[in-house]
Amino acid sequence: MLEVTGLNGWYGPAHILFDVDLTVGPGEVVALLGRNGAGKSTTFRAVVGLLAKRSGRVRFAGRDISDLPTHDIARAGLGYVPEDRRIFTELTVAENLEVGRQPARAGAATWTPERLFELFPNLGAMRTRPGGRMSGGEQQMLTIARTLMGNPKLVLLDEPSEGLAPKIVEEMATAILAMKGEGVSVVLSEQNLHFARLISDRAIIIERGRVRFDGTMAELEARPEVRDAYLAV
């Protein structure tokens, strides 16, 4: 589904990512783990074309998207939910969803507001409420729902649990598993190993811009030294 090879990224003069490789299969949930500043958000930004300077190849759903602008990458079916939610506070819930709407896509689940309200019942009860009047957890649900409106084949979720109450984080886990059930691949960046463990098939650990571990969740559990070295839980 997603195949990243030799990805390098720069932030101004600073070289942040070094030859990052990662692959995600159809319907797979992969956790990108690492400390703050390890390069998780930068990896996502590089994949969706929001980084000014980068090199390397990104193939998605059988096509090379390395040089496409951000909006064309989104139109290819690759959804991206940035770390700080960024819902449109002046727009209502329904309008927020409208911004994310894209035509139905072959080979991907088709989402409508009605279907999304089933997945996130809270949102259905507040369709005309401005985004700015929602709680943090509701806003996080809305950003995910908004991205699903584009009928993506794969979604990059940047720190979905950051700043949320533990209880909302549990609801988030349920929603991500539901997406997986619809065949949507998910890559989520996390610092919270407990949360990642609940939902992921595979883990990739990134540290100082390099991939240090790539394997199944069970393999990671079996190697506490890796966890201790790079995650400092």
Binding site: A165, P166, K167, V169, N192, H194, F195
Partner: peptide, 9 residues
């Protein structure tokens, strides 16, 4: 309301 089941910390 807040802590949940404590699975995530």
């Amino acid at each position: 309301t807040y802590l949940g089941e404590g699975l995530t910390f």
